[in-house]
Computed example of a mutant assay.
Amino acid sequence: MAGRARTDVASVLEALNKISKGRMVMDWNEVTSGANPYVVMKTSNIPGKGVIEIPGLIFGDKHKPVSRIGVGMTLTESVIELASAMKLDLIVVHHPVADAASSGGVPFSDYLPLYDLALIEMHEAFHGLHPGLTLLHGHTKLKTDITFGGIPGNVLHKGVALPDVHTVGDILARIERFMGREIDQDMLEAERAIRGESTLQEATLSNPAKLLSGGMTSPVKHILHFFPHTGFSVDHLEKALQMYPETDTIIVSISRVREDHPFVTLAKEIGLNFIVGNPHSVEIMENGLPLAYALELLLPEVEVFLLRERITAVSLKDVGHRQMVEYGREMAETHLVSMPPRAVQTY
């Protein structure tokens, strides 16, 4: 921290407004008046579970001094605790946040002040600002619609393959090379050995890019790239193919589809390549890293950290730390489920 001057939350918000081309909420009246089109409701119509996206300052004082910023994808209690340990002043996250859901089951007002943390979210205000996701997947975007079919956040890119990308195999090799999967694989193998957990899985590795229609040598030129979790439907795909009949390749990324999804069935019926690209678990690199570097360029006096959350899973029978295994079993058997005591083995 030596030699770094301080700025404040308001200055960070101004920087984000510049990065987003004026999309941030700079005045709370924009939320209630409907003046900002990037303030949107997201809901599955489950009572009480919807959230309003507000690209702006969610919690904290605009005049709060800032010297250390964390940039992340999704706010969780783990992110909050890491920010606390690192003595960060401000967290900037891509995805919308909600009381309790994003803060360990408690309101922001009870949790974030403990660590003197301010909080900003972006999401829809950041979509479509840079061509990184398309470049990583081997094409240059020619057109982008971030509200395809009239749905906010339903992003469709129309692209053309990069000069050195000629086949499906070129795209898959490019993704593998850029994302450094071999590093994550080495880390996972080392962790399995250290923990003694042979079934340990890790989110970025469990969903690799793969081909669901076409062949590795199939030519690639005209590409449609979208994200199934945004509400993109088969009807949307059919409409997009009518708009861009030259399409030979479909790429979906961030979210996944399986081999039997109607998207894949349609692609096979009309002879299109269908590639599943990067999963949501690496969006911190695709979108978070450009955002972090943009903040560093605009606010050189501030130290910026990338908050990358790593998610693993292991079969319960393979959990390696014996003391915690015994703890978990004792809590379950003694306090959660009425169980007779385990027989003591005698020899």
Rank of each mutant, 00 (worst) to 15 (best):
K210L: 05
L57S: 00
F148Q: 00
S102M: 07
D27P: 02
I183F: 14
H127R: 15
T230V: 06
V25R: 01
D27I: 13
F263S: 01
Y347L: 12
P96W: 06
K317V: 12
L114S: 10
S109A: 13
E53T: 15
A85L: 12
R23F: 14
K87Y: 10
Y38I: 06
F227E: 01
F232E: 01
Y347H: 13
T134A: 11
N207H: 08
V252W: 00
Y111T: 13
D318P: 08
V51L: 12
I58A: 05
M86V: 06
T43L: 07
A193L: 10
M187N: 11
M324S: 15
F227P: 00
T204A: 09
G34A: 02
M86N: 11
H139V: 03
L237W: 02
D61Q: 08
P163F: 07
T74Y: 06
L114P: 07
T334Q: 14
M324K: 11
V220K: 00
V234D: 09
K64D: 07
I254N: 07
M26N: 11
L57K: 00
R310W: 10
H137Q: 07
Y38D: 12
E296I: 07
L117H: 04
D318H: 14
V106N: 13
A203Q: 00
H127E: 14
I250S: 01
L316N: 13
R181W: 09
K49R: 11
Q185F: 08
V344R: 10
L133V: 12
I151T: 15
G214C: 01
E182P: 05
W28F: 15
G196Y: 08
T334S: 14
T76M: 05
L289I: 08
D235F: 07
